[in-house]
Design a protein around this nucleic acid. Sequence first.
DNA 1: CACAAAATCTCTTATATTGAGATTTTACCT
DNA 2: AGGTAAAATCTCAATATAAGAGATTTTGTG
Lengths: 251, 251
Amino acid sequence: MGKTNRPDKVLAVLDLFSETHPLWTPEELMRELGYTRPTLYRYLKSLRESGLLMSTRGGQFTLGPRVVEMDYLSRRADPLVAAAAPHLARLTAAYPCTALIVRWYGDKMLCVVSQSSAPNPVSSYPRGRPMPMARGAIARSIMAFLPKQQLMPLISRYAIDLREVGTGETPQDIVMALKRIKRAGVATAFGEVTPGAVGIAAPILDANYPIASLCVTIAGQHASGESIDRIGDEVRTAARLIAADALDDSK
Amino acid sequence: MGKTNRPDKVLAVLDLFSETHPLWTPEELMRELGYTRPTLYRYLKSLRESGLLMSTRGGQFTLGPRVVEMDYLSRRADPLVAAAAPHLARLTAAYPCTALIVRWYGDKMLCVVSQSSAPNPVSSYPRGRPMPMARGAIARSIMAFLPKQQLMPLISRYAIDLREVGTGETPQDIVMALKRIKRAGVATAFGEVTPGAVGIAAPILDANYPIASLCVTIAGQHASGESIDRIGDEVRTAARLIAADALDDSK
DNA sequence: CACAAAATCTCTTATATTGAGATTTTACCT
DNA sequence: AGGTAAAATCTCAATATAAGAGATTTTGTG
């Protein structure tokens, strides 16, 4: 339990690079990770040679070219990205909105592709942006289709968020609310992730299991109750088509 | 020489994932890398737990969510990307073109950000796309500003490409041609990377050393000799401004 | 060109890694 | 569901590999 093998210690270096701290000096890394000097430099050598890290002038380290390249490969290999593209184009042409696909990875949700037509998008959802696990239409559209075994731990883990956005007070309430969403096939949220933005999301199912979600985000003032219903229908249909397309033969 | 430590063997797994082979089964990996079964599974466990790989239904492996997330971080932390954005917007507004920034990593060149305004872009240059090392305006705009010590090995390495695109027959010819480009501050290429596309590129210099290139790509029929000159001036100027902006204090 | 800081090297001790085969778990098919 | 084949994980002794202290080289800078 908590075995400490070397590759994991090398990879642990990568985990330190974050939005607020994208540049690290070897000294800082030594202090933060508790590695000795020669050890750290050995690790950095491996990571630099693989291209995952690079050093800047000034002796600091940042994420390297391999990261950029691998994301490109990952994007091109993702059948969901390919299948979704025309639907995102169609939806953004029809409404002043942002349309995006968010993949569900069990312990995190990330946008994998997005397109926008609103002149000043209410919010930006570029590829790679982490999304909240229990807030917003995307999260609920996925949770609604999870098997109970996976759902319950999530509910207790994010109880605070779920209560705050009004999904329900008790676990039972929440399960009931998610059942309704499952029946409807779409989830809607008003300003839960971004104030003023309405989110309308439908899950993308692989053998009845939610692997991702298609979401349309639109400014509150552009969205009447009726138009939300209409967009909801379109989103649900598009999500089905994307699933059929992406998961057909290529798996 | 060629020392074989474990982290490198773990990271070697990542190198197999390519555009033509983005999915691997454990069996294939074992055969390709020559690792034994338990060893490979131990490596895969590390890589999956770190999120660099994920397994699909069907027991195959692909690049995982961490790749997507790290690219997002890398993009947001890149001062060049931030500094370039307004200039790419301006250039694409002024001409029906694709404007892009390509970073130079010593042994490879990758697009790090691009924007397009042409209705049917002659070619696509998304982030992460590898660019040829010795063809096209981008390559030459960078080579022209490399110190001789780094330039000469490149010239002999890519002699065939350089001759084919008419940069020069002998190393001396090539050095002369690059000297002219250095004096002009811009490089131009006609259909070298993409048939029918004109590329106009200027280096982005950090302390006189080329770290990237700004390129405008435009369809051949939209580009007269005169407009190419005008665009060249704009590109050169924009590249200087981007360099000043990006490399000021944030280094 | 000299100085200080940063990065790398050397060598021994201690430790993590390896791989064959057994064992458990998972996935699939009727 | 239930049984079977395939896939993934575990065990343990032998062995190769990594860690660390301190010396040494390299790099960057005035």
